[in-house]
């Protein structure tokens, strides 16, 4: 993941531009706006979130007004408009998962990470939030971690502890990317 500050201009790499072109080709000519959501996902996968300059660059690439990008980015909950932790633990908080203990899992994550929902740990590694139904009700409680939305099911407190330790190990020795 690349690091980007709030006001830092964003220039897309050749690799990213290649992916963008592949996406735009899926739609009829003149309908390149359809590429907006897939491209925003690609940008978020690289930077971890969508800064205003990043959104402006997407607008320029797709020949849209910046507002057309902002209104979409603010509508869909998957897009982060502030830098989250390097790993965002998104726990399903909707009815069926709560029947099998999702609230207990969220309380445990809050206690274990020591930050409230939406906040980032001081080391920049973690944040967490409750999200609405992930369409995995038979495997609850569940959580997902972007950008590939890796999926963890039938969660217990022990599984959460193990997962957090694993992610910490994974991040060790690498440059931290989240801005605080």
């Amino acid at each position: 993941m690349l690091s980007v500050k709030h006001n830092e201009p964003v220039e897309f790499t050749e690799e990213m531009l290649g992916k963008f072109a592949e996406i735009v080709a899926r739609y009829p000519e003149g309908r390149q706006k359809s590429a907006l959501l897939p491209i925003l996902h690609e940008v978020q996968a690289v930077y971890g979130w969508l800064s205003v300059p990043a959104m402006d660059s997407v607008a320029a690439y797709l020949n849209l007004e910046p507002i057309e990008v902002y209104e979409v980015a603010t509508f869909y909950t998957m897009f982060f408009l502030q830098p989250p932790g390097k790993f965002v633990l998104e726990v399903c908080r909707t009815g069926p998962c709560c029947l099998v203990g999702a609230e207990r899992i969220m309380a445990h994550i809050e206690q274990r990470l020591g930050v409230k929902e939406g906040e980032v740990t001081p080391d920049g590694l973690f944040s967490w939030r409750g999200v609405e139904c992930m369409a995995a009700c038979g495997y609850g409680p569940v959580l997902q971690i972007g950008p590939e939305y890796t999926f963890y099911e039938n969660l217990t407190e022990e599984k959460i502890d193990k997962l957090i330790d694993e992610l910490k190990n994974k991040a060790e020795g690498r440059e931290l990317t989240a801005e605080s």
Binding site: T94, G95, P96, E132, C133, A135, A136, C137, G138, Y139
Partner: peptide
């Protein structure tokens, strides 16, 4: 776009 709480058949 399966997201009706309780539904996970399409996944």
């Amino acid at each position: 776009d399966e997201s009706e709480p309780g539904t996970f058949k399409d996944r």
